[in-house]
């Protein structure tokens, strides 16, 4: 585009002082302004607004529908054939035996927290370091390659991760380290989850490092810092809040993942008791390789088999409601972190 015509278009005032001969003639164009066009223009934004409001309605709708089932466990709502439970016998009890009318969901909360924590422990440091590597150190071919690797890792379906865990990781680990004892449990679940959430953490932390001002890096190196010193003492602290946001979003993905974990964790609601009682193995091996369960895996495992409206069914929906509220909380937390980064 040549310069003069560009500046005329950019500045509406200059059109008024142009000599008449240079003004654009309204030729036959696509842009004829009929009454219809004006009407369409005036009302179309309502259509677009409607689409946006539909998203808001969906967020609210999910909350309402999940609550209608999930809260039925605790409140005497209509259509509820089950027993009304107290909060403490659900949230503060580790006794999950629905056939005996015990509905303590602590094992699942504990399982979710453990597996997510372990996954984050593996994925956050490696993801952030890979992010800094891509943003600041890698040659451009390596940068492109790493982006493609992460794109592929994030695109692999969770059931395929699950089948890899089930048919490759579990047998290999069982054979090499556990003397053929089953390997399902927190360790393999966390490893698979870590690979699943690492692309999120890598891509967000790469963005965080790339958006840092160039002179931070240069300033540190001009003061005599090695490249690693510049990264560890200047770049990582400067990107801090955004790196935490990356980790929080990774955590959100990990805690909500259902199928991959369900395929390798062993699905044992009584894992706390089993871990305490079995004394044939070293404590840390027991902690990592005892079949366990999480909020999501228990939903996948039991929801299809429970009648709608029963206490059992309602408690499962309450677990889903918990996951949803947790998602909202995490998103709000990233907002607060983001505001901290701007200030």
């Amino acid at each position: 585009m040549n310069q003069p015509s560009d500046s005329i278009l950019g500045d509406p005032l200059s059109i008024a002082v142009l000599p008449a001969s240079t003004q654009v003639k309204p030729g036959p164009s696509d842009f004829r302004l009929s009454r219809l066009h004006r009407l369409a223009d005036r009302w179309s934004h309502l259509l677009f607004l409607g689409c946006s409001l539909l998203v808001v309605a969906l967020i609210a709708g999910i909350l309402v529908f999940l609550s209608s089932k999930g809260l039925a466990a605790f409140l005497p709502l209509s259509g509820n054939t089950g027993r009304t439970l107290g909060f403490s016998e659900v949230f503060l009890s580790a006794d999950w035996a629905p056939s005996n009318d015990h509905y303590g969901i602590l094992p699942f909360i504990g399982g979710s927290l453990t597996v997510t924590g372990l996954a984050l422990l593996l994925a956050a440091p490696t993801g952030i370091l890979t992010g800094v590597f891509i943003a600041k150190l890698a040659p451009s071919w390596m940068r492109t390659l790493m982006r493609q690797v992460m794109d592929l890792l994030v695109g692999i379906p969770s059931v395929v991760y699950g089948i890899f865990g089930l048919t490759v990781m579990l047998p290999v680990i069982s054979r090499t380290w556990l003397k053929d004892a089953p390997a399902s449990g927190f360790a393999v679940s966390a490893m698979i989850l870590a690979v699943m959430i690492v692309p999120t953490i890598v891509s967000l932390s790469t963005d965080a490092f790339e958006s840092l001002p160039q002179n931070l890096d240069e300033g540190a190196q001009a003061l005599g810092a090695s490249r690693w010193q510049a990264i560890a003492s200047v770049l990582i602290p400067a990107a801090g809040p955004r790196l935490i946001t990356a980790a929080v979003l990774g955590l959100g993905r990990a805690i909500g993942e259902a199928m991959a974990v369900q395929m390798v964790i062993g699905n044992n609601p009584q894992w706390i008791a089993l871990m305490r009682e079995s004394t044939d193995r070293a404590p840390f091996l027991r902690a990592l390789f005892t079949p366990a369960a999480t909020l999501t895996t228990e939903l996948v495992q039991e929801l299809p088999n429970t009648p709608a409206g029963s206490t059992w069914n309602n408690v499962l929906f309450a677990m889903g409601l918990m996951l949803y509220l947790l998602t909202m909380l995490l998103i709000l937390a990233t907002r607060r972190l983001g505001r901290g980064a701007e200030a």
């Binding site: 998203v55 808001v56 709708g61 959100g252 805690i255 909500g256 939903l299 996948v300 907002r335």
Partner: peptide, 25 residues
């Protein structure tokens, strides 16, 4: 900001939660 918050929330909602919603509705 509000619409973006909603989109982010929906994007971050675990698929098992969407599954429960679809199952109820």
């Amino acid at each position: 900001r509000f619409f973006r918050l909603c989109i982010e929330t929906l994007a971050a909602t675990p698929s098992i939660v969407l599954a429960l919603f679809g199952m109820i509705l």
